[in-house]
Amino acid sequence: MHEFGIAETIVQTALDAARAHGAARVDVVRVRIGDLSGVVEEALRFAFESIADGTPAGGARLEIERAPVRCYCSSCGVEFATAPLDYQCPACGAISGDVRGGREMDLVSIEVS
């Protein structure tokens, strides 16, 4: 439901960066979205297209890279990649309450021309 707000930040940041680099338009926008971010990809794409329309980012390609959930197991001292609801260390079976990745919502890069 908050994908529109996120898309607004994406488009605004991309337009500001493009302008700062003297570019006329934004062709590609790359974001990294964590599996625990609560962001729905289709909703984000729809919001992005709607908001970018009519701006120099109109028609830009949105590339979404997923970031897996990463937990830290304090007994084993290791970090492991997993999925939402599965916070169990594959080595020792302990449940980790220390999630270190998966909530990302990052604007990684843009391509401009």
């Binding site: 994406i10 990052d106 604007l107 843009i110 021309s113």
Partner: peptide, 16 residues
């Protein structure tokens, strides 16, 4: 002269 270029941003959308 108008080549495409990549601008690295690496910033959190939740930064603000």
């Amino acid at each position: 002269d108008e080549e495409r270029k990549t601008i690295a941003l690496h910033q959190s959308l939740m930064a603000k």
